[in-house]
Amino acid sequence: MNPTPVPLTFRLLQAATPLLFLMVVLVFGLLEPRFFSFSNLQGILLQSTATALVAVGMTFVLLVAGVDLSVGALMFVGAALAGKLILAGQPVALALAVMLAVGVVGGTVNALLVTRLRLIAFVATLGLLHVGRGLGLWITQTRAMNLPDSFLQLGSAQWLGLPLPLWLLSVVVLAAWTLLNRTPFGRHLYATGFSEEAARKAGLPTRRIIGLAYVLCGACAGLGGMVALAQLGAVSPSFGEYYEFEAITACVLGGISLFGGRGQVFPGPILGAVLVKSLFNGLVMIQADPYLFPVITGAVIFFAVGVDSLRARWLQRWNQRPIYLTDPV
């Protein structure tokens, strides 16, 4: 390849999400100096943990060119069951295990719908979203449940100076990264996302690979549900709503292609999740009209996605082989 200098604008576009992130932080920091305080930054990180966990799971599914709209509903079902168990005096560990199990079971159902019944991922997971939401409301009898403070402490407890949710996130991200980049399964996942047909022809067990992506996504949704529950301390009928959109947004901001096969699980989606949450946090701090939050968030995400599309087009032009070399300017 010819070592033509890369234009500055292109380099800026390449780093669009981190730059946008910096911009958001700077703007809020200038408007409200308390935004920069350590406790607030840590708070943002904690607030984004649940979304980041779900986004890690979503990454697997997006990498195989699928989508999972049911994650929020799965979080809700898990939280509803866990809440019942805790209020009935069962051990916390059991409740947490049940949340994870609900995620895995839901993911397995999605996997079966997509790989065995050959439903389109969008429709299959949309159906499970309905079922899950209904199930959760039925379990909770559409009433909110407040959990004891002992449970709430899980969300803020620390180990070696780091809050537990951040430990969980770190472990999950490390595991996901290793799985995707250092095992044959991970590389097969990328290959399947690039072209399912070609992967099948190459003798890869594409059904199992795609299925496993949904199971992993469900498991991550279960973990995300745990963190969200421990932080909120209550199960309301709207628990877990819009997590699917937040997770997809975090992934897209983090450079995961919706068409499969492209993107890295770290740092993109994590950064994307933090960006979305810091936006919320900042708006709260500057005491913006709460009704404007979705408007501003929507606009910022739109901008980020637009920049990303621009970057993809530039990249395409950049990768085009020249037929003859132009004289250096």
Partner: peptide
């Protein structure tokens, strides 16, 4: 070796060569 190549643009050459047996 089919007319339409069965390769993956998002993987490295090495990964393409050893995809079915790392």
């Amino acid at each position: 070796v089919h007319q339409e190549l069965n390769l993956f643009g998002n993987l490295s050459v090495a990964e393409n060569l050893c995809l079915d047996g790392f």
